[in-house]
Nucleic acid binder design. Structure first.
Lengths: 243, 243
DNA sequence: CGTGAGATTGACTATATTCAACCCTAGTGG
DNA sequence: CCACTAGGGTTGAATATAGTCAATCTCACG
């Protein structure tokens, strides 16, 4: 996947213009952000921010996938968030973060220096409101994930994960139709779902064997049986309710 | 536990005056809230709000403990939040909620009708900011809980739960010194920790047998070995870092 | 004093983990 | 061009942890 070069791109041409923190801004407000923004790029695997590190900038994710993760002293790690394009990194009123932020794929961020951005938030209600919405969306997502982590079986976790990917990935027109990218290693998926990588692998195989999904290669799959997938998530006991 | 009667109490006498959504309000702003508020009480076990139900009011929790929970179709349930005094119920811009809200103990809420409250939020930055802080605090708590649900052992979950109770419960002066109330049944604790009630019971017994905690009765305990408790949470591998 | 909800404990089981071997496949260098 | 390598992925066998089912206990309350 080639990463588009963004230097010099105006906000109006930005792919996340209508979903990111700037979504509700009018032309005037957008102008202010335009003057503040800088782009940063990261290679897959790079750490974007370390837990506890002072936060120099906040940012919107433009391209790629990033993850938030927490680690216990003995090395067990749990992903606590998955950032897709238009998601926001950083938060008003906090100077450090409680988790590591890592580039899962190659990533491009649209960055703002923290202090001036906060000043702008204070007198731009459109930005403040959108920030609140984004935080509440994250909270909803976190709570759904708590249900998954606490109560779902390995099979249901995998099915839910696939289902979420399908819903959230605005499939690029460039991609093969029906082929959905799996932008993480088995190990990363395991850390997201609270499983081991072996269990992740086994459950993918099981879903494939059952004819629910199929892999074109290890990082692209298709849904064969949408109904079966929904059922496997554990969210619907009644098949009639699905879809 | 007798529930104090609050009708007619002014905001300045309110026990959560400096922590709730009104924390940053000046006297003028407080006056507006004062005119809008009504108190509601619930018995332990009452459902305060059902998932999906249109949200008539928002509220601050004044006394008691309430819980947010999600349930799968087949009945498995997971608590996704625990509300203690000063926590807020409801959110700007949403007319319904994604989880059930239940009174865990007897509860008193300070309620505001949703529409007028939202209007007030829009031109009271002190309230809007505090609401944002509360949302971000909840997000942090949710993420810590994801680490617990996804990666901790039953023993670590129980130890972490106790540790959280100790930190969050502003122990009432009326209580026996050192006796910490356990304001939930084993079943509710299990739903919070992603365990079964039997496992919760066994792990409490194990911690007691190890001399870490002791029960005065089933709903009051004390910490015997603080160091041991911290170690059992899994958060510190190095005992020297604790405390 | 009897009742019933909640809690504890035990025996057995199931699910996911651990440990380990082996398999792809893309990238590298001879 | 092919062989080698290394990182990621798959699969199998044994194990451990928490879940299930069930009996018993405790205690607050009528």
């Amino acid at each position: 996947m080639t990463m588009p070069v963004l230097e010099g791109v105006t906000c109006n041409e930005c792919p996340i213009r209508h979903r990111a923190v700037c979504a509700r801004c009018d032309d005037d407000e957008l102008g202010k952000l335009e003057g503040m923004k800088t782009y940063r790029s990261y290679k897959a695997g790079d750490v974007i921010l370390w837990r506890g590190e002072p936060l120099e900038f906040v940012a919107s994710l433009v391209y790629g996938v990033a993850s938030l993760s927490k680690t216990l002293e003995d090395g067990r790690t749990q992903m606590v968030g998955l950032l897709l394009p238009s998601d926001f990194i950083g938060r008003p009123g906090r100077t450090e973060i409680e988790f590591d932020v890592t580039a899962t794929s190659d990533v491009t961020l649209c960055c703002f220096d923290r202090a001036p951005f906060e000043a702008l938030v204070n007198d731009t209600p459109h930005v403040a409101q959108r920030l609140m919405e984004l935080a509440l969306d994250e909270l909803d997502a976190a709570r759904d994930w708590m249900l998954l982590l606490g109560r779902k079986t390995a099979q249901e976790k995998i099915a839910t994960f696939i289902d979420m990917l399908v819903r959230r990935s605005h499939s690029e027109p460039s991609e093969v139709p029906g082929a959905i990218p799996l932008p993480m290693t088995r190990d990363q998926i395991a850390n997201y779902l609270g499983l081991t990588l072996e269990t992740v692998s086994r459950q993918f195989s099981a879903l494939k064997k059952r004819g629910v999904i199929d892999f074109t290669d290890r990082h692209h799959f298709q849904i064969i049986d949408n109904e079966g997938l929904r059922l496997a998530t554990g969210d619907d006991s009644d098949p009639a309710l699905a879809g």
